[in-house]
């Protein structure tokens, strides 16, 4: 469903005003992976490791320097921060329906779709006329998920969807994402810095460091038999219960 090979994206920062040299930030440096249909691929790594750049490259917001991206279907994204990713001036109906209005879907069809989606993400119909500031973090993230799946995309990119939420709200959102995947056969690219969450969600996991994928393995193998030093470091920094 997703096939990425040799993906590169460098950012250049000129050191002096007259161009006396440049600093290179290798955000993504030769990344290759593939994700099968209906599967969840987890990307894990510290902030600055290039996880979000991969999300931006896949959505086409950022163009790659080199490398191929093949995507077998529609694609939508859920962002990390549910406080800044929803437009504060739009009510929930317009936030969720916007992508349908743009595609000139018929009005009755839009109404029906929005109502279906709301029940899928377990929100009341009364939320439609409310604005983002009236919701808690968990409810906002549900709205963001509803917006991402309203077009019935084949692939959803989840860029740290639970990192800003409480653990109990996080559990609800993770369950919801799994339910939606079962019902709609979605393919997920799940990005997070927390290996526990990635491991819970994913079938395969890629560990990123400094723009490179240092290890790709099945989700059980990664904690049972980590190969790379960095993966071991990530595992050791997780608080145990």
């Amino acid at each position: 469903m997703i096939n990425v090979s040799g993906l590169k994206k460098y950012y250049y920062k000129s050191r002096t005003f007259l161009g006396g040299g440049t600093d290179v930030v290798k955000a993504v440096d030769g990344v290759s992976f593939s994700v099968a249909k209906g599967e969840t691929f987890g990307l894990v790594g510290e902030s600055g490791s290039g996880k979000s750049t991969i999300a931006k490259l896949l959505t086409g917001i950022v163009k790659p320097d080199s490398g191929d991206i093949n995507i077998g279907g529609d694609l939508d994204i859920v962002f990390q921060d549910p406080y800044s990713s929803l437009n504060p001036c739009m009510n929930v109906k317009n936030i969720i329906g916007e992508s349908l209005y743009i595609r000139k879907v018929k009005k009755d069809e839009i109404e029906k779709r929005i109502k279906d989606i709301l029940s899928l993400v377990r929100l009341e119909h009364s939320v439609l006329k409310k604005y983002p500031h009236q919701f808690s973090g968990g409810e906002r993230q549900r709205i963001a998920i509803a917006r991402a799946i309203v077009r019935f995309p084949a692939i959803v990119i989840l860029d740290e969807p639970v990192s800003s939420l409480d653990v109990s709200i996080q559990a609800g959102i993770l369950n919801l994402l799994k339910d939606l995947q079962d019902k709609m056969g979605l393919t997920y690219l799940f990005i997070s810095h927390d290996l526990r969450v990635v491991e819970f969600m994913s079938d395969h996991i890629g560990v990123m460091k400094d723009g490179r994928l240092v290890e790709i393995a099945g989700s059980a193998e990664i904690y049972e038999d980590p190969k790379h030093e960095y993966t071991k470091h990530l595992l050791s920094s997780i608080p145990r219960l």
């Binding site: 653990v167 109990s168 559990a171 526990r196 969450v197 491991e199 904690y223 049972e224 997780i238 219960l241």
Partner: peptide, 9 residues
Amino acid sequence: LGCIPRLGD
């Protein structure tokens, strides 16, 4: 306690 995913869950 239960809602935190653990390794090897």
